[in-house]
Nucleic acid binder design. Structure first.
Lengths: 224, 224
DNA sequence: GGCATGATTGACCGGTCGGTCAATCTATTT
DNA sequence: AAATAGATTGACCGACCGGTCAATCATGCC
């Protein structure tokens, strides 16, 4: 830190390492490092609990530099939200592009979404912070919702899905079942059997199995 | 403020209103007022976002008085959690006491819990803060969970509920469906139909109807 | 009427918050 | 080589944070 100002410039110029390629100031990398550090601390403590000083320290830069690149804490928080949700958008796009509308789409979506949240706990916490922190102005205009509703209605028209339930409610319920599990998995006890006997993922497997089974049979049209 | 120290005691003694009954210092009422103000601000901004000064101002007392009664901010937050969850515990106790184990218990529980959360939005936000704010240490050893699991197992033994699903997962899913809806109702868009056409409760009604229908049929034993 | 006890107040404290600013360093352009 | 623009730094600021303290007030007890 103080080395550069104290040491004469000759010393600072000494290292003649090949400063090509990666050896530069590279503001892009700096921005990325800041966003990475901010993401970690925002996800952990929320936008109110994380401090600019801690973020700067974790990113290895000065607080002023963060303001130089992002302006204010709110704008940094906005950038973190944008970058943090990216994995979710990527996953959603991949799902919607790779799958045609067939009858196993709903079940597969549940399984995929569940496993995606399981693999991305940071996304889960980010969604919670985004939902509760401000008055939560912005809506979540989710392609997954609108498109899921459309395909569910199509299934109802074809007689594959029972017609006496609101499609949008089914989609919201499906998302709730997946998201809520990981948001509250540490606070929901493990029941009478204690917590130690099952290897932490067994409960998740059993849960996924149960909701898939119940949803599949619960959405089947009445057979008579 | 300074009136009391400047004015002679005779002036202060002037009001001879009947100071019996409610005309006293009443530290109990003060504590209650502090808890009420703190609950409101904690629910709104979370334990990190709410400040002691704001709480004191809203309660109409001094910051020092809060420390006199509760010690620290953490202890006040603990008191708020305790008092804020009370409606939930009351509701739970009422449900468990008033109902015997019959076949409509599960469906009725869903409906009751859903409507309880709908009527107590503060409880919903409190649960979110409690789950995310600290490292979220404490578990939620919920009588509702353990007892629900027990009765679900009983239903499975009697052949009323399909036996190939984990009872605990069903209970957790039922709670998730209710809680998540109100935690994210403002962030989940209203879909292609826009938000204005339905009177804000219609979506909740449709949702409750859908999850009850799907759960009821999805938990029925296989008929052949 | 004194007297102890607790409720209540306002002034104050060290620390941290988000944010600003002038200066220095780096890198590109001319 | 000079100049220009941007990246980066450390020192600094006022505001607010949670918390403390001595003093005053109200109240019940002897």
């Amino acid at each position: 830190m103080t080395d550069r100002s104290i040491m004469p410039s000759s010393v600072a110029a000494l290292p003649e390492v090949p400063l090509a390629a990666t050896r530069k100031l590279d503001p892009e990398a700096t921005r990325a490092a800041i966003v990475a550090a901010a993401t970690e601390l925002f996800v952990e403590h929320g936008p109110n609990g994380a401090s600019m000083s801690d973020i700067a320290k974790k990113a290895g830069v000065t607080k002023s530099l963060i303001h130089h690149h992002f302006g204010s804490k709110d704008e940094l928080w906005a950038a973190v939200k944008l970058a943090g949700i990216q994995p979710y958008l990527d996953w959603q796009r991949e799902l919607l592009e790779s799958r045609g509308p067939d009858e196993t789409l709903l079940t597969d979506s549940v399984i995929w979404y569940f496993k995606f949240l399981q693999a991305n706990p940071a996304v889960v916490r980010l969604m919670v912070w985004m939902a509760i922190e401000p008055p939560a102005v912005g809506e979540r205009d989710d392609d997954l919702i609108t498109l899921g509703v459309a395909r569910l209605e199509q299934g109802q028209r074809e007689g594959l899905i029972r017609a006496d339930v609101d499609p949008r409610s089914v989609i919201v319920g499906f998302l709730s079942l997946c998201e809520h599990f990981f948001q509250y998995r540490h606070v929901m006890g493990c029941g009478r059997n204690g917590c130690e006997d099952q290897p932490a993922d067994a409960a998740a497997d059993a849960y996924l199995d149960a909701i898939v089974k119940v949803m599949a049979r619960g959405l089947r049209p009445e057979e008579e």
